[in-house]
Design a protein around this nucleic acid. Structure first.
Lengths: 305, 305
DNA sequence: TGCTGTGATGCCATCTCGGCATCAGAAGAA
DNA sequence: TTCTTCTGATGCCGAGATGGCATCACAGCA
C-alpha cells in the first residue's frame, strides 16, 4: 500500500496538540477533546515522531512546551482558525448570503429598473458583491456565453439560445433633438419628418438587431437616414446632440434628466421599440446568489409595470 | 463512540480535493496522489457530504468546479502551503539554524569577548536572532532562574545552583581617576593611597558579592572608602569620574576608549578581581540554537585567552 | 453498434483509532 | 519513612475507516 502522503500528520494531530499545548495537561485536554487520555498521549507521540522533534516536555509536575512546540503552535493556530471558518463560509455561499456576481447593463437599464433592483438586492443580500459594468448587448451575449458574466440587462433582437431571459420593460423610442432644431418647436411629429436630420446612433456591432430595426423603420416611411456619428455609451450621444451634431433615438425613461440645450419628443406612428430583458445562462444553473438577484430583478419588474 | 470532532474533514480530503480541482480529472489526480481512482471518488464524496454542498460537477466530458468548490480551493491553498512548510521549519529550528535567544551581558562582556562572539555566531548561524540586553549580574541570575533569559554574561560571586557556567576571563581591577586627581601624576600606587578619594560604584544590589569584595579589599588595607554615587551602567560611572565626582573601579579591558579628562591606572597589591562567565540553565537543556551560541562563546574565550 | 474513456459502486483485506485496564514514576501527606 | 494521589505511558482489543480490485453505468465517437 502506498500510504504516500504529503503531510506527515493529520488535522486531528494538530487539533489535539493545540489543546494540550494550551492546557498543558493531558487529562484535561483529553476531556476537552472528548477522547480518552491514552488516545491523546498516543496522538501527540505520533505527531512528535512524525516531525522528528519533541514538542512537549512531560515532567512530573506538569507539561511544558518546547521551543519547537511553541513554533508549531504559533504556526498552526491561524491555519486551524482559517480551516474552521470554511464550513460556515460555504454555507453562506450556498444559501446565497455571500457571493460575487458580475452583472452587465445598458443605459436603458440604468435609467429604469436597475437602481431599484440594486437597492433592494443590497438590502436583502448585503454579503453579495455585485460587480457592475455598462456593456452593449452584443458584448453581454458573448460574455454570457463564455461564462465571464453571470447575468445581463440587455436588448435582445433575436432568439438567445442557451439563455433564460425575462422581459422587464418595453418602450417606444422618441427622439432627442438640439433645442435649435426646426422640429423642436412642434409638439408632435412622425419619423418621416426627420428625413433631413442627421442621426447619432450607437455602433451597429453593439446591437445589430436594434440598429437594423431603426433603418427598417425609416425605410417603411421611405427615408434613408443620414448617420452623423456612432458613439457609445448613450450619455455621449446626448452630448453630441447637445452640440448640435444631430438627433438620436431615446426612450422616455432615458430622457428624464437632460441638459437645457436638448429637447425630447415622442413620435407618432411607427418607431423602433426597445425591449429590456434580464438574461442568464441555462447551464450551469445559477448559483444561489445569482438566483436571488434574478428573483429580485423579476419582482422589481413586476411591481414597476 | 464520541467521534466528536472540530473539523468535518481531514487534511487528506483537502489535499485530494485540491488535486482533483486542479487537474479536473479523477483518474489523473488519483495517479498523482498515488491512490486508486475509486478511493479518490469516495474521498471527494465524503468531503462534499461533510460540507453539505457540491464542489465538483461530474459531467461526461470532464469535471468542472462549482462556485463552492472554487471558494474552497481558494481558501485551502494558502493553508495547505502553510502546513506543508511547517516540517522544514521545525527541522531548521531543531538543527539550530533558526531560532531566537535572549542574551544579557554586562559592560565588561561588551568591552571584551562579546563583540567577537556575536560576529562569529551571526556568521555561522544567520537564521538565529539574538536579543541583547545589558543587565546587571543579579538581574541576570533572576531572569535565568525564571526562564526569561537564555544565557547571560555576568560576574558570579558565589555558587550558582541550577546553572552551568564557564569562565571566560578574569581581570584585576584598576581605578579610573579624574585627570585633575593628585594621584593621576603617579604611574603606580596602591589601594590604600585612595583613602581620601570618593568612589563611584554600581548599586550594591546589582552584584552584592563584587561590591562586598571591594569593601573588604579596602578593609584589608585599613581604609573605609567613601561612596560618592551609585550608578549603572558603567558608562555613566565614567561620566561622573570625568565630571570630577570621584574615582571608580574598572578593568583594563574596559579602559580602552576613554575621554581625555580621565586617567586609568592599574593598582599594585590587593585589588578586587572581576571574573566574567557565561551562564545558562541546566534544566531544561539548551535548545540547539542556544547550544550553538554557548559553543561559539566558549571557543571564542579559549582562542582569546 | 461497438469501442473508449469517464466517474461511481460493491466487496473485502488491512490498518488505524480510540476505549478500557493497567503500569511506572514523582510529589506530597501522614 | 511509607502511603496516597496524581501525572502520563503502554498493552490489548474491537469498531470503523481506508484503499485496492473488479465491475458498473453512462456519454461521446468512429
Amino acid at each position: 500500500m502506498p500510504r504516500e502522503y504529503q503531510f506527515p500528520f493529520e488535522l486531528r494531530h494538530l487539533v489535539y496538540f493545540r489543546e494540550v499545548a494550551t492546557q498543558l495537561h493531558f487529562r484535561k485536554a483529553a476531556e476537552s477533546l472528548a477522547i480518552a487520555q491514552p488516545a491523546l498521549s498516543r496522538a501527540i507521540a505520533q505527531l512528535e515522531s512524525a516531525l522528528h522533534c519533541d514538542l512537549l516536555n512531560r515532567t512530573r509536575r506538569g507539561v511544558e512546551i518546547t521551543p519547537a512546540g511553541r513554533l508549531l503552535l504559533e504556526r498552526i493556530e491561524p491555519l486551524l482558525r482559517g480551516l474552521a471558518a470554511i464550513p460556515a463560509e460555504l454555507t453562506a455561499l450556498s444559501s446565497g448570503q455571500v457571493g460575487h456576481i458580475r452583472v452587465a447593463f445598458t443605459g436603458l437599464a440604468m435609467a429604469t429598473v436597475l437602481p431599484g433592483i440594486l437597492r433592494e438586492f443590497n438590502q436583502r443580500f448585503p454579503g453579495v458583491r455585485v460587480e457592475l459594468n455598462e456593456s452593449p448587448t452584443s458584448a453581454q451575449l458573448a460574455a454570457l456565453e463564455n461564462g465571464s458574466l453571470a447575468c445581463g440587462f440587455f436588448h435582445p433582437d433575436a432568439a438567445t439560445p442557451g439563455l433564460h431571459t425575462r422581459l422587464l420593460l418595453r418602450e417606444r423610442n422618441g427622439v432627442l433633438l438640439p433645442a435649435t432644431h426646426p422640429l423642436a418647436k412642434r409638439a408632435k411629429f412622425q419619423l418621416r419628418d426627420l428625413a433631413a436630420t442627421p442621426f447619432v446612433v450607437f455602433p451597429r456591432s453593439h446591437n445589430p438587431g436594434f440598429y437594423d430595426r431603426i433603418l427598417s423603420a425609416f425605410a417603411r416611411v421611405g427615408v434613408i437616414p443620414s448617420i452623423a456619428e456612432e458613439v457609445w455609451p448613450r450619455a455621449n450621444a446626448v452630448g453630441l446632440v447637445r452640440a448640435g451634431l444631430g438627433a438620436t433615438f431615446m426612450t422616455p425613461s432615458e430622457a428624464q434628466h437632460l441638459p437645457p440645450e436638448v429637447i425630447f419628443r415622442e413620435l407618432e406612428g411607427p418607431t423602433p421599440e426597445s425591449r429590456l430583458v434580464i438574461g442568464w445562462r441555462k447551464h450551469p444553473p445559477p448559483d444561489p446568489a445569482l438566483q436571488a438577484f434574478i428573483d429580485v430583478a423579476a419582482r422589481a419588474a413586476r411591481t414597476s409595470s
